[in-house]
Computed example of a mutant assay.
Amino acid sequence: MTDAALARSIAEEAGRLLLSIRHSGATGRALGDAGDRAANTLILDRLRAARPGEFILSEESEDDPARCSARRCWVVDPLDGTAEYAAGRGDWAVHVGLSIDGVPAAGAVALPARGLVFDTEACAAAPPARVPPRIVVSRTRPPAEAVLLAERLGGELVPMGSAGAKAMAVVMGEADIYIHAGGQYAWDNCAPAAVALAAGLHVSRLDGTPLTYNRRETWLPDLLICSPAVAGTILAVLAEGGEG
């Protein structure tokens, strides 16, 4: 099985498990915690069985710094958007990504509440960006950079939950730009970045530099996903805003 097919199969199975746990009677934080634990156990078990000896960096497991010396490292968020999941919303995701030499090379993102799974092998090309653009941002803390873009480009801010849900909105053409500032972790965006790249989208830091993974530091300060056709304009606006 290819890496992408494996990631898809595991993300899909974890999504089904998470949907079933929603009907277990747990609510609120207890539901989120139960989902995190169960999905993490399933994903780790499946990856260890299929790719024995390979490193896994998961939000829900203790980190092994020895992974930094390996070319391949799986980067996993068993339940991205725990708050949305626990609240009964649909904008949460399962991330199973693979970093090879620091690059988000393969992976899958499942949106179980919508019955959707995207992977790097079978992902269709993202549609062209619209004008004015729809800009997906955090539900709770839209970054100043997104507000600046909306003002300069005449765009509309669209609040949404998990990073995976926002990235896949751009992949599907439901949104045109995903911008995040204020920090994420590697597991928040490795699989979404891999899928977005496979869909032909621009993926970078807000200064235009590439995202790199499997570093000792798991913190990633910012992220931009958009059509390559508008990436130059967006990066220029952000650079001007930073200088101002």
Rank of each mutant, 00 (worst) to 15 (best):
D91P: 02
A106C: 05
P133E: 03
T140V: 13
G115N: 05
A126Q: 14
I100A: 08
W74D: 10
A66V: 13
S69M: 14
L17I: 07
G97C: 07
R29H: 10
G35D: 11
N40I: 03
L19V: 02
E151Q: 15
V109N: 00
S24G: 00
G107C: 08
A26H: 13
P112C: 03
I135W: 08
L18N: 04
R16W: 02
V76I: 13
H95K: 08
N40R: 08
A125W: 10
A124P: 06
L116S: 04
V136F: 04
D77E: 02
E121R: 04
V131S: 12
A113S: 01
R67D: 04
G102C: 04
P112R: 00
C68D: 13
R134S: 13
S61F: 10
R16I: 07
P143G: 05
A146N: 12
A122H: 01
P128D: 14
G107F: 07
A105R: 13
W74E: 08
A87D: 15
A124E: 11
A14F: 01
T41I: 11
V76W: 09
G53Y: 02
V137E: 12
P65N: 08
L57R: 09
P65M: 04
A129K: 01
A66G: 10
R139A: 07
E54T: 07
A144E: 03
A146L: 13
A150H: 06
F118D: 05
D36R: 14
V147A: 14
L18G: 00
P127H: 15
L149A: 07
P78R: 07
A66S: 15
I135Y: 01
F55E: 08
I100E: 14
S99H: 06
A86G: 11
F55A: 15
G28P: 06
I56Q: 06
A113P: 03
R48H: 15
R139W: 03
P112Q: 01
R89P: 01
A86H: 06
P128V: 13
S69E: 15
P65S: 03
I56M: 12
R130L: 06
R114L: 14
V131N: 11
S99N: 09
D77T: 03
P52Y: 09
P142V: 07
D63A: 04
R89A: 10
P78N: 06
R67T: 08
D77F: 03
A106H: 06
A83W: 00
R134N: 13
E62S: 08
A146F: 14
Y85A: 00
L116C: 04
A39D: 10
